[in-house]
Amino acid sequence: MPGPTSFAVIVGAMKCGTTTLFNELAALPEVCGSVPKEPMYFSRPGWDDGLSRYQALWPDYDPAIHRLALEGSTEYAKYPDFPNVAERIAAFEAEHGLSFRFIYIVRDPIELIRSGLAHGQNAGWFDGDRERLFRHLVQVADFEQQTTFYRETFGPDRLHIMQLEALTADKTATLARLCAFLEIDPPSPFEIGGTASRLNSAEQRKADLDAAAGAEHLDRLRALKGIYGKVVPREMREQLRPTLQRMAGRVLRRPEPQWRISDAEQVALRNALAEPVAQFADRYHLDRSGWTPL
């Protein structure tokens, strides 16, 4: 069975709802989602190994059903850490006679950076180097710079810009505009359940980490409980209970990650982003009324 030749790629921006958007689009009948969602194919070595290797990311693709193959790799919009992605895709497209369209979703850049700090520190990015992580996130949030490569390489008509805030507020209209860009049928109102749910959020990730840590400690305590009950008399256990509970609370309490943007970081990101974010918003007529002022 022939593999896909028409592709839609969510290139970013990270922490702007790309996972939610991917799931919304992959659920449409004419769209086949990649496995995994973020193959990072064109940002890593081996991107020029041939068409069949790329097409293998869509094992469920059926040309009788699907019109588009979808992937969502946010590394594609993380210049300069991952350079030359647009140029690679253009060369791959020309060599194999393919067609690519690009989707870029944005949000309040301050919220992007705040969420990215939580995500990156929890995941141990850059070996815990917060300063390096912050610089990386400021570059990611420079929407104007990250999209320039796609506008210049493929032309503005093959790049669709959308806002997470719009997707959350009016999913039906926002997805309808996106589907018109992709030239596929939009979902019916009956298939859309109100506002877009947020996946892969910082709050969800922190809750998952807390739950995992709690389960790990609980398993250890259960193993010790039997020994403790046999060695320490019951009366003494009752007397020691309040003290042990306070000690356990101190041991099990997870330190609060340093997610807050410091005053110095606020100044740095304002100096770096105020002008390009305003330029980007004006270019695409974005509503910044709900965004944190830069």
Rank of each mutant, 00 (worst) to 15 (best):
M1I: 10
P4Y: 01
P4R: 02
T5S: 09
G12T: 10
A13I: 08
M14T: 08
K15R: 15
C16S: 15
G17I: 09
G17K: 11
T19G: 04
N23M: 15
N23A: 13
E24P: 01
L28C: 12
L28K: 08
V31Q: 01
M40Y: 13
Y41Q: 06
Y41N: 07
F42P: 14
S43Q: 08
S43V: 10
D48C: 11
D48H: 14
D49P: 05
L51V: 04
R53V: 13
Q55L: 01
Q55D: 02
L57R: 02
L57F: 12
P59H: 06
A64D: 14
I65M: 03
I65Q: 13
A69H: 10
L70N: 08
G72N: 03
T74R: 12
E75I: 14
A77Y: 04
K78G: 04
F82N: 14
V85D: 15
E87M: 01
I89D: 01
L98R: 03
F100C: 10
F100S: 09
F100A: 09
I103P: 02
V106I: 13
V106M: 03
R114G: 08
S115F: 03
G116K: 10
L117S: 09
A118I: 12
N122K: 06
N122G: 11
A123D: 12
A123E: 10
G124Q: 12
W125D: 01
E131L: 10
R132I: 06
L133S: 03
H136A: 15
V138Y: 02
A141W: 01
D142R: 06
F143I: 14
F143L: 12
E144S: 01
Q145N: 01
T148Y: 07
F149W: 07
T153C: 05
D157F: 04
R158W: 08
L159D: 07
H160G: 03
E165C: 06
E165L: 05
E165A: 05
T168S: 07
D170I: 09
R177I: 14
L178F: 09
D185N: 03
P187G: 01
P189E: 09
E191V: 04
G193V: 09
G194A: 04
T195W: 07
A196K: 00
S197Q: 14
S197V: 15
S197A: 15
Q204F: 04
A207P: 07
D210N: 10
D210M: 14
A211S: 11
A211F: 11
A212G: 06
A213S: 00
A215T: 05
A215L: 07
E216P: 00
E216W: 06
R220Q: 02
R222A: 05
L224I: 11
K225R: 04
I227P: 00
Y228G: 04
G229H: 14
V231P: 00
V232D: 00
P233N: 02
R234L: 01
R234S: 00
E238K: 15
E238R: 11
Q239I: 14
L240T: 02
R241Y: 06
R241P: 04
P242F: 12
R246D: 11
A248W: 15
G249L: 04
G249A: 11
G249E: 13
R250P: 01
V251E: 08
V251S: 03
R253H: 06
R254C: 03
P255A: 07
P255T: 12
S262T: 15
S262D: 11
D263I: 05
V267S: 10
L269T: 03
N271Q: 15
P276G: 08
A278C: 00
H285I: 00
R288H: 02
S289V: 03
W291D: 07
W291P: 10
W291E: 09
P293G: 08
